[in-house]
Measured scan of single mutants.
Amino acid sequence: EEAIQNFKALLSDMVRSSDVSWSDTRRTLRKDHRWESGSLLEREEKEKLFNEHIEALTK
């Protein structure tokens, strides 16, 4: 649960536009030290959280 919250915070800070792809964003996020705290999450979970974040940005 904490890993999810940390990853959501990372997305909020780093992803402000809804027209970015997961693969491009992932490359950028990996450069942030907080990426490692999400290592407990599966890749699919990270992508799902990313997609939810993008959906929220479009509303």
Score class of each variant (00 low, 15 high):
48 K>G: 06
6 N>K: 13
12 S>F: 08
25 T>E: 06
8 K>W: 00
13 D>N: 04
40 L>V: 14
41 L>V: 08
46 K>G: 14
43 R>L: 15
58 T>K: 15
41 L>H: 00
20 V>M: 11
3 A>Y: 06
10 L>W: 04
55 E>W: 03
44 E>M: 07
58 T>N: 14
10 L>A: 06
21 S>Y: 00
20 V>Y: 07
27 R>N: 12
13 D>F: 02
7 F>Y: 03
23 S>V: 11
16 R>P: 10
28 T>E: 15
23 S>F: 05
4 I>V: 10
47 E>M: 02
15 V>T: 03
56 A>P: 04
40 L>Y: 08
17 S>M: 05
49 L>G: 02
16 R>M: 09
12 S>P: 03
52 E>L: 06
55 E>A: 12
47 E>V: 05
51 N>W: 04
40 L>K: 13
12 S>V: 12
53 H>S: 01
27 R>A: 13
14 M>P: 02
18 S>R: 07
9 A>M: 08
42 E>A: 15
22 W>M: 04
5 Q>R: 13
22 W>I: 04
33 H>D: 04
1 E>R: 06
38 G>T: 15
26 R>G: 06
50 F>A: 04
34 R>K: 03
55 E>K: 11
42 E>R: 15
32 D>C: 04
32 D>G: 00
37 S>A: 12
3 A>C: 04
40 L>M: 10
46 K>Q: 14
52 E>M: 08
19 D>R: 06
41 L>C: 03
46 K>R: 11
42 E>C: 15
23 S>R: 10
30 R>I: 07
2 E>R: 11
6 N>P: 00
16 R>H: 12
13 D>L: 02
28 T>N: 12
20 V>D: 05
55 E>P: 02
28 T>Q: 15
6 N>L: 07
54 I>L: 09
9 A>T: 08
33 H>W: 14
59 K>M: 12
49 L>W: 00
3 A>G: 07
10 L>H: 05
27 R>E: 15
23 S>I: 10
22 W>V: 05
17 S>Q: 11
43 R>M: 15
20 V>N: 02
14 M>G: 05
47 E>Y: 01
25 T>G: 05
58 T>Q: 11
58 T>E: 13
16 R>E: 09
11 L>S: 06
30 R>E: 15
18 S>W: 03
2 E>H: 02
37 S>C: 13
2 E>G: 06
12 S>C: 09
49 L>P: 04
18 S>T: 14
51 N>G: 07
48 K>H: 09
55 E>N: 11
30 R>W: 05
8 K>A: 01
49 L>A: 05
20 V>G: 06
19 D>I: 00
4 I>R: 13
24 D>F: 00
18 S>D: 12
21 S>C: 08
44 E>F: 04
25 T>C: 14
8 K>Q: 06
43 R>E: 15
31 K>L: 12
33 H>A: 08
18 S>A: 15
54 I>R: 09
34 R>M: 04
11 L>I: 01
18 S>E: 09
3 A>M: 07
50 F>K: 04
24 D>M: 05
53 H>Q: 03
33 H>K: 14
53 H>M: 00
28 T>A: 14
59 K>Q: 12
43 R>Y: 14
56 A>H: 12
15 V>K: 01
58 T>V: 08
34 R>W: 04
19 D>M: 03
44 E>K: 13
10 L>D: 06
54 I>E: 07
5 Q>S: 09
10 L>K: 06
54 I>K: 08
19 D>F: 01
11 L>V: 03
32 D>Y: 00
20 V>W: 03
40 L>F: 05
53 H>D: 04
51 N>E: 08
8 K>D: 00
8 K>T: 01
50 F>L: 00
37 S>Y: 10
23 S>H: 13
14 M>L: 14
37 S>E: 13
6 N>I: 06
41 L>F: 00
56 A>C: 11
17 S>G: 05
8 K>E: 01
11 L>D: 03
38 G>H: 10
39 S>C: 11
32 D>R: 00
44 E>A: 12
21 S>V: 07
33 H>L: 09
38 G>A: 15
26 R>N: 13
46 K>E: 13
51 N>T: 07
55 E>H: 06
1 E>S: 08
16 R>K: 14
13 D>W: 00
13 D>V: 03
4 I>C: 02
25 T>K: 05
12 S>R: 14
59 K>D: 10
58 T>S: 13
7 F>K: 07
1 E>H: 04
18 S>Y: 07
21 S>F: 00
55 E>F: 07
23 S>L: 07
37 S>K: 12
42 E>I: 09
38 G>I: 12
16 R>S: 11
6 N>Y: 01
34 R>D: 06
56 A>G: 14
1 E>G: 07
5 Q>V: 07
10 L>S: 03
15 V>L: 00
40 L>P: 12
19 D>V: 02
57 L>S: 08
